[in-house]
Amino acid sequence: MNFKKILSNIVEFYHDMGTVNRENATHILEYEIEEIEHIFALLLFGSFTGMPSPPVHITLQLLPLMEKELELMFTKVATAHDALGEITSVLGEV
């Protein structure tokens, strides 16, 4: 193994270390963002799940742009019964 190869492996190692650390640093924040996005979607599309919602024309005008949030909202419905499990899985990764 020549010197160049060793150097490139070291650089790659530090780069990966940095990525892992950044992932760890942002993981809880990303989870929080996901939760707020979920609340934002619920606030807008609450009528889908029986909650009071804003004037229907506002909902409809934002609906086509919110695929991700809507998908998240439906995923949350599936995981809602196991909130504790979800929190421990988030904390477990830190």
Partner: peptide
């Protein structure tokens, strides 16, 4: 005016989400 009330609250909410997302993008 009713629509404006809702939209002004929604814009604040959205800004909050985007500010947090911005922090993540900045770190990554």
């Amino acid at each position: 005016s009713v629509s404006l009330l809702w939209l002004r609250e929604l814009v604040k909410f959205r800004q909050m989400i985007l500010n947090k997302k911005d922090i993540v993008t900045k770190i990554k």
